[in-house]
């Protein structure tokens, strides 16, 4: 607001005024629902999760072992040569601490997210997931070793959440 104008003419509006219809609005909730075919590669990944395995796909041309798996190598642009499980342990590549929930509200217990380079996969490939069993997020370090904490087999549904989170592991 400029120095000369202390107050604009007219009536000030608050968010609540809009909600009660003081300003004409139209509300509409779209019905949009999808059911994606998982396809060749992600079907194997999903089936692997149910068995407590992280499935990678392999390209013999560039030699990469790729997590998450894909049906084609995007570098070489050719179909992959096979699928293989990798370990459920890995190393933290990068991480963040979210104090805000999906609906933008503040949360007390922050959500710890990390990109984890999986052991057995090519460098820089792995999963984006949550971290758990960490008392203070300041303990998180680059290169920290972590391991998947799985749901019990009967609770797994073929979803990325079949892994509850990754927890730090001490290695001898």
């Amino acid at each position: 607001m400029s120095e000369k104008i202390k107050r604009f003419p007219g009536e000030e509006l608050k968010g609540a005024d809009i909600r009660v219809g003081k300003v004409p609005t139209i509300r509409f909730r779209p019905r949009v629902r999808y059911l994606w075919s998982a396809g060749v590669a992600m079907s194997r990944f999903i089936e692997g999760l149910k068995e407590g395995k992280i499935v990678a796909s392999t390209c013999e041309k560039c030699g990469r072992i790729m997590v998450p798996p894909r049906a084609f190598c995007e570098e070489c642009f050719k179909p992959v040569d096979g699928y293989t499980p990798v370990k459920d342990t890995g190393t933290i590549n990068t991480w963040s601490v979210s104090y805000v929930a999906g609906d933008a509200s503040r949360i007390k217990e922050p959500i710890l997210v990390a990109v984890i380079d999986m052991d057995g996969a090519s460098t820089g490939m792995g999963l984006l997931h949550l971290l758990g069993e960490i008392d203070d997020w300041k303990q998180i370090k680059f290169g920290m070793r972590v391991k998947a904490v799985w749901k019990p087999p009967e609770e797994r549904t073929g979803n990325i959440t079949d892994i509850r989170y990754f927890k730090p592991v001490k290695e001898v």
Binding site: S37, G39, A71, F72, C76, F77
Partner: peptide
């Protein structure tokens, strides 16, 4: 219906065929 492939896999097949048809060019 195409429950056997994902949209990505469908696109990959069409692209592979087109690149081959255009003198086997490399998209890379």
């Amino acid at each position: 219906v195409t429950p056997d492939v994902s949209y990505k896999e469908m696109m990959f097949e069409a692209a592979t065929r087109a690149y081959q048809d255009a003198g086997n060019i490399s998209p890379r």
